[in-house]
Design a protein around this nucleic acid. Structure first.
Lengths: 210, 210
DNA sequence: GTCTATAAACCGATAGAC
DNA sequence: GTCTATCGGTTTATAGAC
């Protein structure tokens, strides 16, 4: 393979990657706005600016398209989690990940967890790259939770499962959507309320400023 | 109108009411299991055991059917809330309503809140009987929340809006579905965890047994 | 790879017989 | 009021020209 050919191939691959990233961006927005069941392939194609047939040249089904989008989102979440300073306490790292996710959710870039009632759930768990990322994130956050329970920063008498699912669910909490629709609060305030009610409940006091 | 005629009419009306209650029961189950968008009128008819055309003799559209089901559910919620002993503190009444709702949710009788991403939301708010019940429940629970904030049982520095939406959302929390799917906990344990994390957060201690 | 056009399936709603 | 049969519209996915 000559350098020229290699360059041309690489350029084509870059173009392909760029186009597919644009598609996944659109899917991400539509998934956040309407959810999997209400999102149509026509809308995706229109949002990207290509035809539906071209879309199917890149992704062979609606399920695979959504799975690719969710997988990329989990990779971004893992990247953000790994980027957190090591000197932060596990509790602060968990809070930081949650704040990041809720902020993305309010920006329309974080779809809600595929609920038990959606068609996509079964397809996702059978999609290896997605399941692998879920496992990685669960392992990472699960370790932080155990550490935070050891120091008493999180309730030691609460099953780790309950804490993990609670953090996952609060990261795309419908409460933030309702508060945003109300229009009485800024996005930062909403993120603060969701974080506070998740960690301290609605009976607890706000954390003292560090 | 003769007594005989009145009796016959009443009987027919009872039959009608009974049939429509059976329809709403089926809608309630399907709404809990699949949500509005994935529920089909064919399924509803099949679950009740009548034909789709007959179904349309009772309710003139899918939206009205869902609205009637949700309205009845809100009435049942209001009935339960009003039945609570007056000597209970506002906080305990709020917790009781939430436990009741989560229990119903785990039994497949409490559909999730119509999310912002569903087609049904706009139809519901334009459906007067539904909107009226939502207003009544919000007024009732909102009053309890204010009282609980006055006594310090709920955080006084949290907007009532945030507390109300949080209680609403936690009443059909997906966390309970995930925990139930896991199979490691009984329904009572799950209800307890959801209540505790809602009111005390994941950092707080369990409430001492009264 | 991109397009237009279309196939195949599904769903909400209705017509018309009984 | 209940049924069977069907319409009209939408959606996923593909065929075939360029």
């Amino acid at each position: 393979m000559t350098p020229a050919t290699a360059k041309k191939l690489s350029f084509k691959q870059q173009q392909l990657r760029f186009r597919e990233d644009a598609i996944l961006d659109a899917v991400n927005r539509l998934l956040s706005r309407k959810g999997f069941d209400l999102m149509t392939m026509d809308e995706v194609a229109a949002e990207v600016g290509i035809s539906k047939a071209s879309l199917y040249k890149h992704f062979e089904s609606k399920e695979e398209l959504a799975a690719a989008s969710m997988t990329r989102l989990l990779e971004q979440t893992l990247d953000h989690a790994h980027s957190l300073a090591a000197e932060l306490s596990p509790l602060k790292r968990l809070k930081a990940v949650m704040r990041w996710a809720v902020t993305a959710h309010l920006d329309g870039a974080m779809p809600s967890l595929p609920s038990t009632r959606s068609n996509i759930q079964h397809a996702l768990i059978g999609y290896a790259p997605y399941a692998e990322r879920v496992g990685q994130l669960t392992e990472l956050l699960g370790g932080w939770i155990l550490q935070a329970q050891d120091t008493g920063d999180l309730s030691p008498d609460l099953p780790g499962e309950v804490i993990l699912y609670t953090i996952y669910a609060r990261s795309c909490d419908p409460v933030s959507d309702f508060l945003k629709t109300g229009g009485a609060f800024t996005d930062d305030e909403i993120v603060g309320y969701v974080e506070r009610t998740c960690f301290n409940g609605i009976t607890g006091s706000p954390d003292p400023v560090a």
